[in-house]
């Protein structure tokens, strides 16, 4: 059976000042119906670009190659009109900054209802009722009052609840949440994670959670993909990844998470060096310059993403850590 979202060999290149700068290189991934997938990587790893490309939301100077299928139909390069049949209704996105993704001069109620009027062809009255119901569902207190408020009157956490509610209005098959808690405080973050988990269980949708924070992804997803320098370097079930990371980058990244409990180390664990900058030569394994296990082969031959045993554990490394 074909997965809900199927991305094959997706590459994104930006043209900037006459230079081709690759952001995503030959990424293939699939999300099944009702599945929850985490995408982890540092800034510049291309984790957001993959899904912005799939949603047709990239800037004009981006060239996208590859194939993206949603529910069996191509959605890459099909033009805004046919893309809008799925985008915003069956396939929705929640962004990092809930302030800038809401229109400042319209009330919350109008913005929510508009989604239903546009995508589901409901009347305004029906749509407003459904919107109020949704605010209640995403646990926004006093939904009636919030309907007539403007985005700036709400706190960051509330705005993100509204955004999540908006993305769920048309009962989507897949929600892509891009760093949904990064702009929020840690106590509020816990609530939003909780909300996303609950809504997924209740509505049975698939979820893609993009984050730099392994802790956030851990609690919400079944499967995690780790990206580095525009490529997927490891893919595994969430529990397996945290217990037995096979790619040295994943392992180092996990070590870098400082702990609230246990003994304090004298120095904070770090990853040496800098992540490669876009436009750096693309030869061999991108992580090799920072890798303690790197051999000469790593600098010349790029390791493919291959099965590494275990349940669907894949890793792109010549010398993966032993399982």
């Amino acid at each position: 059976m074909e997965p809900l979202l199927n991305i094959e060999d997706l590459s994104v290149d930006y043209t900037h000042g006459g230079m081709e700068i690759p952001a995503v290189r030959q990424v293939s991934l699939a999300v099944a119906a009702r599945e929850s997938v985490g995408i982890v990587g540092e800034s510049g790893s291309g984790k957001t670009q993959v899904f912005m490309a799939a949603m047709g939301l990239l800037a004009a100077n981006a060239a996208v190659r590859g194939r993206v299928r949603f529910e069996g139909g191509d959605i890459l390069g099909v033009g805004a009109e046919s893309l809008n049949r799925v985008r915003g209704s069956k396939l929705t996105m929640v962004f990092q900054d809930p302030m800038t993704s809401l229109t400042p001069h319209l009330t919350i109620g109008t913005q929510l209802a508009e989604v239903l009027v546009c995508h589901a062809g409901r009347s305004w009255r029906e749509a407003r009722n459904a919107a109020r119901h949704m605010l209640d569902r995403v646990r926004v207190p006093e939904p009636e009052r919030r309907m007539s408020q403007y985005p700036h009157e709400l706190s960051g956490g509330l705005r993100q609840r509204v955004m999540i509610g908006m993305s769920l209005l048309c009962e989507p098959l897949l929600v892509i949440a891009d760093e949904p808690t990064t702009a929020l405080d840690v106590t509020v973050q816990a609530h939003i994670i909780d909300l996303l988990g609950t809504m997924r269980r209740e509505l049975g949708m698939a979820l893609v959670l993009i984050s730099h924070d392994l802790g956030v992804v851990a609690g919400l997803t079944d499967r995690i993909l780790v990206m580095y320098a525009g490529r997927i370097v490891e893919s595994a079930g969430a529990a397996e990844l945290f217990q037995q990371a096979r790619h040295p980058y994943t392992a180092e990244l996990l070590k870098c998470i400082p702990s609230l409990t246990g003994p304090r180390q004298q120095r904070m664990p770090t990853l040496l060096g800098q992540p490669p900058r876009p436009g750096d030569p693309d030869e061999g394994c991108a992580f090799a310059p920072r890798c303690a296990r790197a051999a000469p082969r790593c600098r010349t031959v790029r390791p493919p993403l291959e099965d590494a045993g275990g349940s669907a554990h894949r890793v792109a490394c010549h010398f993966p850590l032993p399982s």
Binding site: R139, P141, T187, Q189, A190, G197, F242
Partner: peptide, 24 residues
Amino acid sequence: RALLAAVPSPWAPQPQPAATAVPA
């Protein structure tokens, strides 16, 4: 206490929201 309880960790169970989400 709420602050400490809310920090997510890959190895610990999902943090429980400790306090009321939003002041009324």
